[in-house]
Amino acid sequence: MRALQRAVSLPSLVVAFVVLTLLSLRPLRPLEADLHGFWVRTYPDWVEWILQQVLDRLTGQAVCLPVLVIVAVVLARRYRTWRPILVAAATEVAFLGGVGPLKLLFARPSPELGNAQFFHWHWGLLDGGWRTSYPSGHSAEAILFYGAAAYLIIRYCRPSPRATRWIRAGVGLITVQSVVVAYLLGWHWTTDLPAGVLVGGILLHLVLRADRRLIPSLLRRWDPSSVDLDPGDLEDRQLRSHP
């Protein structure tokens, strides 16, 4: 368990992303060309429809953002605190301020353009990053948005350990399926996908840190009673009082 916690810690994720990026710049590029393909085009049309119109949309903004917002609003109303809504807002800000700039920075054209090299800034700037593929936005959204929703549910509803494991496993399953679906559709080079997962994990860490350190201080200035009603704060106080 400790080894797993270290593996998914913020420093470990940052180091892994840097190493993967350095490898993707040149050493892994020939291998990526061999691994890439629009594999779904060899399957029946109904398979492509399910992958593109159903499974792939699960990790798009049109689905994952409303899911997070619904969770946040329900918890906010139940516990009479703005904190879950601020967490949801911080998640969206983290995605837009993290993944978008990275796509523009690395400016790796999507496979449809047939070029796996980085730093084609004319594509990134002219198209607003839409035709750049590193890191994968959907992979980042999968772990970031669903991870934030799971965090809110676990923090406020305090499910049983078994239910908590199932919730976390669900986030992992959604993340894995986003990687597999994107790979089969051929919309990303191979390393774009784990890079998106790593970036999503990094941003999720930052959102959780903001919830523990920044958001409570903002709420104390705005509505002190809102923080006092937060069950997560009460649990944190109990843990500090009884280590």
Score class of each variant (00 low, 15 high):
A148D: 04
G137W: 06
P159C: 12
A94T: 00
G114T: 05
A62N: 04
L105Q: 00
P111W: 11
L86H: 12
I50E: 04
A62V: 06
G170W: 01
H122K: 06
L102I: 09
A76N: 12
Y146V: 07
I70C: 14
W49Y: 11
S160C: 08
G147T: 10
G114V: 02
R77M: 12
R77Q: 10
P135Q: 04
H122Q: 14
V74N: 12
V47T: 11
G97N: 00
L86N: 10
V93W: 09
A169C: 12
A142L: 08
Q117T: 15
G60S: 15
L75P: 06
R57N: 15
L144W: 06
C157W: 11
L75D: 08
L51Q: 10
L96M: 06
R165G: 14
P84N: 13
S136K: 03
V71P: 10
R80P: 04
G129L: 04
G129H: 03
E48M: 08
C64G: 01
R165V: 08
A88M: 04
T132H: 05
I50P: 04
L144R: 00
V67E: 05
V93S: 06
Y151P: 08
G114Y: 02
D56K: 01
A76Y: 12
W123F: 11
W46M: 08
W49M: 10
F119E: 04
H138Q: 07
L55K: 00
H122I: 01
A89W: 02
L68H: 05
N115K: 11
I154Y: 01
L152W: 10
W166R: 15
R108A: 02
A90K: 05
R168F: 00
V69Q: 08
L96D: 10
I153Y: 02
T59I: 02
V87I: 15
R168A: 05
G137E: 06
P101N: 08
P159W: 02
G98C: 11
A88H: 03
G100N: 14
L58H: 02
G147Y: 06
W46N: 11
I85D: 07
F106V: 07
V54C: 11
V74S: 12
T91Y: 03
D56A: 15
T42H: 14
W123V: 15
Q52N: 11
A148S: 14
L68R: 07
V54L: 13
Q53R: 14
A90F: 14
S136A: 11
Y156W: 09
R168M: 11
A142Q: 06
T132E: 14
L104W: 01
G98F: 10
S110N: 04
A76V: 11
G170C: 03
T81R: 05
R57P: 06
G128L: 03
P161A: 13
R108G: 01
A149I: 13
W123H: 13
T91P: 07
A116F: 01
D56I: 03
Q61A: 15
W121V: 03
K103S: 08
G97C: 10
R165M: 05
P101E: 10
A62F: 02
V87G: 08
I154L: 13
I167W: 03
Y43Q: 13
G97S: 12
P135E: 02
H138W: 01
P66K: 09
Q53I: 03
F119P: 06
F106R: 04
R80V: 08
A116H: 08
R80A: 12
L126Q: 13
E92Y: 10
V67F: 11
Q61E: 15
W130M: 14
V54W: 09
Y156L: 02
